[in-house]
Simulated scan of single mutants.
Amino acid sequence: MIDRSATTISADDVVDRLKRNLAYHTIVRKIAAQQAIDRAARERGISVDPDAIQAEAERIRLENRLEKAADTLKWLSDRTISVEDWEAGISDRLLSKALAEDLFESEVKSYFAQNKLNYDRLILYRIVVPYETLAQEIFYQIEEEEISFYEAAHLYDINEKRRYCCGFEGKVYRWSLSPDIAPALWSANVGEIIGPLQIEEQYHLFLIEEFIPAELKPEIHQAIIDKLFKEWLERELQYIFDR
């Protein structure tokens, strides 16, 4: 029950609003997912150390610049949760991480070996414009060195964030690229302008700054565990809701 002056919100009110906004099923699935995690953790004898909860709470406080205890209490009050609720949520997240590692740590190397190409990356720049003629004109201007790719992205790209970054997309995994463009990018050379390629109703030009061959570094190691754990959890939920 939430009671703030003239406003009173009951648990039934929350459930009703979730249903009206078509969000009820999402919440039910999240509850079922946590129950599946709790059950699997118990079966495997996995628990969360209270010191780990306190360390994570301290990290969150530092991240949110909550220097004093009073700052933390106000931050929690603004979100209508107690210290106990907050620490329980931290415990849930740490338990999920511990279970994922217990389930799939031993599978990471073999999974990476079988799917290594998917974890190749490239440093990618992109220009997206609405018209093919404009895309062709930009391509010719860059080829003739009348303008650089980065200047063209800053001037013409339809996405504001990409304009400010002069077309920079970042380090992109092969698996994250659509089949429409991945072959063209991986067959190109560094510094070569690729395109224009039509994707839906827009026209794209690409520039590759660097190819980064896959290595089993910590971020990829964790990404594989997260992927395998997500697939496991989806199977658990399917079993729960289909039976």
Rank of each mutant, 00 (worst) to 15 (best):
A23W: 06
D12G: 10
N189R: 15
Q35C: 00
L73V: 03
S82P: 04
E234D: 14
A152R: 03
Q54V: 05
E231K: 14
F139N: 06
C165N: 13
N21V: 07
I199Y: 11
P196L: 09
I193C: 11
A188D: 08
Y111K: 03
S82F: 06
S148G: 03
E107N: 07
P179H: 13
I240L: 15
A41L: 01
E146P: 00
D38R: 00
G170D: 09
V83E: 10
L124D: 03
T133F: 07
A11P: 07
P183R: 09
L103C: 03
S96G: 06
E105R: 13
S96E: 06
I81A: 04
E146V: 00
R79P: 03
L95N: 02
D16Y: 13
L62E: 10
S106E: 12
A152V: 04
Y150Q: 12
A113C: 01
F168T: 02
K230V: 06
I138F: 04
I123Q: 07
D102A: 15
P183L: 11
S47T: 13
S106I: 08
D78H: 10
Y150G: 03
P130I: 04
H221R: 14
G167D: 08
N21C: 08
A40C: 02
T7W: 08
E143L: 06
E144P: 00
G167H: 08
V28T: 10
R162N: 09
